[in-house]
Design a binder for these strands. Structure first.
Lengths: 349, 349
DNA sequence: CGCGCATCTGACAACGTTGTCCAGGCTCTA
DNA sequence: TAGAGCCTGGACAACGTTGTCAGATGCGCG
């Protein structure tokens, strides 16, 4: 008797019985299958009395529609995927939340995962989401080649990249003005008299890191300052590496008098190190950090609006899904310099 | 010719053609449907030559298996749901990430959503996840009645509650020792000479808030201190309410000399207010906060391990799914008092 | 009282996959 | 060379839902 063994037999973890289906509900209510479907979906054409009977049966059986089957039939899942770098990073929390809010407003659920800055994991995750047939994808790229998404996009998966641009494909992307923000931040230090300014950033293959470095170079060049190699350090943002890099810049004959920190993680570590120094060193950090205003001195930052990034990206995604056929676009959001003290310190020898 | 209109006609947003199915791949490779399935799933019984032809067809067509159909057939989705309070709250980031890591280790995807502390939204979200047929559910409760999950649990949805216990149902729950942590924190203040100690917490219907208040009362009672009504304030944790409450306690004839802050959001606001005060006020906060060590004075906190909460809950969930039938259990993780200065200030008049 | 129409209901196929089972071709042995 | 047995491949049903379409039911009107 094949296929009459039902799920409970096949699935080890299914501790109790089976889920009732519409068929079960129909049998109990003494109506047809389609009538149950109609009631469940609020379609018209069901008499109040029939509807009541069906509702009772649903209650009694604890029926819940199986969205997998629904998805299979309808072709849309009402869910979108979010591939980000690290859910635990305070920068991505608000971004993720903003995407979720927009999704919710469109009746969609959010599936997400962290790539941990690993291109392979990013791809694996994005494709798993596509296999799940999400309607759309918001991706914070870890890798620099996204051609693997081409078949998906062609098949209709709406796709928007955030925070960093897509690699080797033409797609919507929402970014902060990393170049301009960094340039302004460094110019701010120069305006306060600094000439020897250090830059500590993330790995150079990460777009934001490269852009911010470019901004640093531009500001220095604008001021006619020749940048020395040893003032720049790009690499992993773990505290150990950042500490080494920072201490190196601060030692020697001509130590830097100011530091531009390339992201929130770097900033936090640098703050710790500067607190240990005897002479004051100016600091401007990219990304705002909580409590930055309460430190002594307050931390001057170039702030991005993470929530706006997420919101903009998600809204763009749903506009794609609405069918308004849009040419891929690059949207750049401005950053904001927030002066709190650390960036206004004069150079000290 | 009904049903021959294919998805592209039915779905407005599907910009391009249709996705290829196994049938299409089979046709192109000149093999049977099941053979494609075998190749896709790495099942044995396919000659290398046939496999190669199938792989080529998959490549050429950009085929990706439709997991919705797979789920429908197999009964398992390899995805779990996470209902939390606010993804943007720095406390839930690491928790969420930890759940994700465990899910990943078990080959499952994570679908999550924020309840925004709204019981109705929590229910809506949890049930939507169940309709999506997640294999399991990790819930940070916003409401206090979870009987609505009973049919789901009976139907085999593994369920674990974190951070706060479930209401009116018997289920696994993983908690921090809120009572003990708060008691220790308040006792710490008492040990440093304080008698008039304020407590500012979240809404009393939230379990953690109630437990922490209970810990506060216990510590005070242990020390033989009669608690005055005006020392305690529970409610929303928005800065405005917290500010009013704090300023009230700090004014009048017998102001409090120390404050116990009920969670990270409260702590941050209280720090701001205390920075404005002329006389020093001691502070111990529940939850650790970033940069707490760099403030003047450093912020003494009762720290919970958010990642451990998430990890423990998720592991428990997968143990349920493994079929090891477990009686619902309540797991309590210890907290840790981290002294940094603010909690060791002596009382000042 | 009968007919037509509107309203409500249900049978059936299809979504794309996987499990079962059988057919056909091959190899190996007697 | 014939038969047994193994291996590969494919036909078919089923998962639970929704769209289509036709049949049933009841009502009003002539």
């Amino acid at each position: 008797m094949p296929e009459t063994t039902r799920r409970a037999d096949r699935l080890p973890g299914n501790r109790y019985g089976n889920r009732p289906t519409m068929k079960d509900v129909a049998a109990r209510a003494g109506v047809g299958l389609k009538t149950v479907s109609r009631v469940v979906n609020g379609e018209p054409g069901v008499t109040p009395d029939t509807e009541r009977r069906v509702q009772e049966a649903i209650e009694a059986l604890g029926f819940r529609r199986n969205d997998s089957a629904r998805v299979l039939r309808k072709g849309r899942t009402a869910s979108i995927g979010l591939v980000l770098e690290d859910l635990a990073d305070p920068f991505y929390g608000p971004l993720s939340r903003a995407v979720e809010e927009v999704a919710r407003a469109h009746g969609a659920l959010l599936i997400n995962g962290s790539s941990a800055e690993d291109p392979e994991r990013e791809q694996e995750l994005a494709l798993a989401l596509c296999a799940r047939r999400v309607d759309g994808l918001v991706v914070i790229p870890a890798g620099d080649d996204h051609r693997y998404l081409e078949p998906e996009i062609r098949a209709g998966v709406a796709t928007v990249f955030v925070d960093r641009p897509a690699g080797r494909i033409d797609a919507d992307v929402v970014l902060s003005d990393n170049y301009g923000g960094a340039r302004d931040g460094v110019a701010h230090l120069i305006a306060h008299g600094h000439r020897r300014i250090g830059f500590i950033g993330d790995m150079p293959r990460i777009h934001t890191a490269a852009e911010r470095l470019r901004g640093y170079r531009a500001a220095m060049e604008d001021a006619g300052i020749a940048v020395e190699e040893r003032w720049m350090s790009l690499g992993a943002t773990n505290p150990e590496r950042v500490r080494r890099a920072t201490e190196e810049m601060l030692s020697g004959a001509d130590p830097v008098t100011a530091i531009f920190a390339g992201n929130n993680r770097v900033t936090v570590t640098v703050i710790r190190i500067l607190a240990e120094q005897s002479r004051p060193v100016a600091l401007v950090g990219f990304d705002d950090i909580e409590l930055a205003d309460l430190l002594q001195p307050g931390v001057t930052v170039v702030a991005q609006d993470a929530a706006a990034l997420g919101r903009t990206a998600a809204e763009r995604l749903f506009r794609q899904l609405d069918g308004t056929l849009l040419a891929p676009e690059r949207i750049e959001l401005p950053t904001r310099l927030i002066t709190r003290g650390s960036g206004e310190l004069p150079p000290a020898v």
